[in-house]
């Protein structure tokens, strides 16, 4: 039996060799989080104001070093448009680095909200099995069967296109996932020996639920959260893309891709491509972190 224990520990080994990947994911996430804090203030232009320069292409790679030194030495009248400007004259670079404030905050708050509510309800539903909690699970089932993107679109569009409403809509579609995950884990943890031991020691049921079962049931929800943050960013951007997300001129990646979309057929690629790269890397970063957490959990 314990020879299997050693085998299982042996199974976790490829982890170390993928550390560079983990480092990459962590770097991306740290940068995005930092931009969410300072992004709107450090850009060369105000991300919500247009400039008179419309549809300026970004400098070619060869020009960048010269431009950069000129900019540093202060010989330029105005800072260069590193990523060009879009058809309305917005500086793409300033908006790309200001957008995490919108995208990441929506994703984090929505996830935090659904995580807290979902874990709380999941703990109750898993620890106390009765008609009321069974009914709750049926409601959760119905909520979970909603088509995710379309539901979010309906909620935001009908409630009004505001950041708060996007957060609520995302929390609505994600909460049932956390309820289900936590409930399942609680049900498997509450029959474990240490729970019975806690009872034998004279703990109250409430005490057992909160001090013993809950901390041991959090892992699946936390792993899910690390993955869902990335998906929430995709969802937020997607909503803006179809016109059911934040309103212009809020700097938001999906909205930027959407405004650039009409120009792309005309060859004006930069207003869409740069924010897209930002989303692509950000969500990938979160996926890498989530995956690393998942592997650690599987190994233990």
């Amino acid at each position: 039996m314990s020879s299997q224990h050693t085998l299982e520990t042996a199974d976790m080994l490829p982890r170390r060799r993928r550390d560079w990947l983990f480092g990459l994911g962590l770097t991306i996430v740290v940068i995005v989080v930092a931009l969410a804090v300072v992004g709107p203030y450090i850009g060369p232009y105000d991300p919500t104001l247009t400039t008179p320069n419309v549809s300026v292409p970004p400098p070619s790679l060869a020009e960048v070093p010269g431009l950069f030194s000129a900019w540093i030495s202060g010989t330029l009248e105005a800072p260069p448009h590193w990523m060009g400007t879009d058809a309305s004259g917005f500086d793409v670079f300033s908006r790309v680095i200001a957008a995490p404030r919108t995208d990441l905050v929506i994703a984090l708050v929505a996830n935090g909200l659904s995580l807290v509510i979902g874990v709380f309800l999941g703990l109750i539903a898993g620890y106390y099995r009765n008609a009321a909690t069974e009914f709750m699970m049926r409601v959760s089932d119905v909520m979970q069967s909603f088509p995710v993107f379309i539901s979010a679109m309906v909620l935001v569009a009908l409630a009004g296109r505001s950041t708060t409403n996007i957060v609520i809509a995302l929390a609505f579609v994600y909460t049932p996932i956390y309820v289900r995950l936590t409930r399942a884990e609680v049900m498997s943890q509450k029959v474990r020996g240490f729970v019975e031991a806690a009872r034998a020691l004279g703990n109250t049921e409430l005490n057992i639920a909160i001090r013993h079962v809950l901390p041991n049931s959090l892992t699946p929800a936390l792993i899910q959260a690390s993955v869902t943050i990335g998906f929430a960013i995709l969802l937020t951007a997607g909503l803006s893309f179809v016109g059911a997300g934040v309103r212009p001129p809020t700097p938001e990646w999906g909205l930027m891709i959407s405004t650039g979309a009409n120009q792309i057929i005309l060859g004006e690629w930069w207003p869409s491509v740069f924010p897209g790269i930002a989303i692509s890397l950000t969500v990938f970063g979160f996926a890498v972190l989530g995956n690393a957490l998942e592997r650690r959990y599987d190994a233990s």
Partner: peptide
């Protein structure tokens, strides 16, 4: 990991730029 975490609408646009426009 990468493909599973991508904005499809952006890749769609990118493909359009690449395969249609270019």
């Amino acid at each position: 990991l990468f493909a599973g975490s991508q904005p499809e609408f952006w890749w769609g646009l990118l493909f359009v730029y690449l395969f249609f426009f270019t």
